[in-house]
Amino acid sequence: MVSQEQKDHVEQQVVDEQEEDAGVSSPDTTPTPDSALSDDKQESQPEAATTGGQQQAVRTGKRRGRARGRLVNAEEVMPKPSLWPLAVAFSIAFVLFGVIAGLVVLVIGVILLVASIVGWILERR
């Protein structure tokens, strides 16, 4: 288990610091390295990136002129698992079932739905 986890600690794409700060608000939606680089996609790349992070860091640094290479952890960049999507989806289905099954089911469904939306919003990510 641990060794598997260890592998996930990736020597990963370098991260532009400015971009990283911008990504704080919604870190799970946009992996920062990507957006950092996709800004430059018109720029022609000198060669296919096949080498390790360090070399990439140098290159990116050259290109952006202000970036500093750093290794990132996969867990940090990747979206966190969450139970709330399931909860909200289930409650919506429940509400719609309530539409045909009757008022009681409908009310329970609405309560569930509100609760799970609140849960989704309040979840720390």
């Binding site: 799970d28 960049v77 979206p79 999507p85 399931l86």
Partner: peptide, 25 residues
Amino acid sequence: IGARDMAYPRMNAFGFWLLLFGGIF
């Protein structure tokens, strides 16, 4: 396209669960 995930991973999960419950429904 060389991305690490979809743009909205939770919404992605949400969409799947809706599909499953919709199908079961």
